[in-house]
Amino acid sequence: MLTKRIIPCLDIKDGRTVKGVNFVDLRDAGDPIELACRYNRVGADELVFLDISATEQKRKTLADLVLKVAAALDIPFTVGGGISSVEDAKKLLRNGADKVSINSAAVRRPELINELADAFGNQCVVVAIDAKKVNDSWLVHLVGGKVPTLIDLNEWAREAEFRGAGEILFTSMDHDGTKNGFANTALAELTEKVNIPIIASGGAGNTQHFVDTFKKGKVDAALAASVFHFGEIHIPELKQILKKENIPTRII
């Protein structure tokens, strides 16, 4: 039976993990490889690396990092941040990334989704969407949530699917950082609207939130950063809880 995925997300700046990592047994909390290997060992199903380097120049280190990650990991991983062409994606995929995640660049130029899907296959293309509820509708925001648009979340997700996206990573800006749980009502609606896998992101605070997003949000995967980085939730324990709740999960 296909299992639900648990995905830790690592924010990368200039080749280092940022946003704080608090594991006692890591020699260097900023080293993304060391952190990635730790998550691999404890049973993470997949990892996401999101490059938030400010400049193009600094992003060049990303391709080198991807190669090192691919050498170290034996589970799949997605890389995102600043990808706006087939050429950008090709470097990362050739170095061993399994999928690329695109966000603002796809909204600005939706053909990018078609181009990536044609070049590498739908399974490589994750469309990340940041959205916020404004007057009862979920509106897409760009540039890490800084720039609002009038685009509706569900309509954009359907267009992304139609153009060849293999997966949607939906981050609720209203829930992100609150630790009050995922946007399950919006996620359940989104799941009805598209027929590709959905990753829930934003709002994880405790293990019950993961149970809820799989049961109520009906998602295929759940992503979180700080609750894992700070050791507030341990993946092996989380998976035992999911199993008890009859949510199919990979126990290693």
């Binding site: 296909l2 299992t3 199903d45 739908n122 590709i196 896998p197 295929d220 995967a221 990979r250």
Partner: peptide, 9 residues
């Protein structure tokens, strides 16, 4: 859902 994506038994 198509594609199937993830770990299956």
């Amino acid at each position: 859902k198509v594609p199937q994506m993830g770990w299956n038994t």
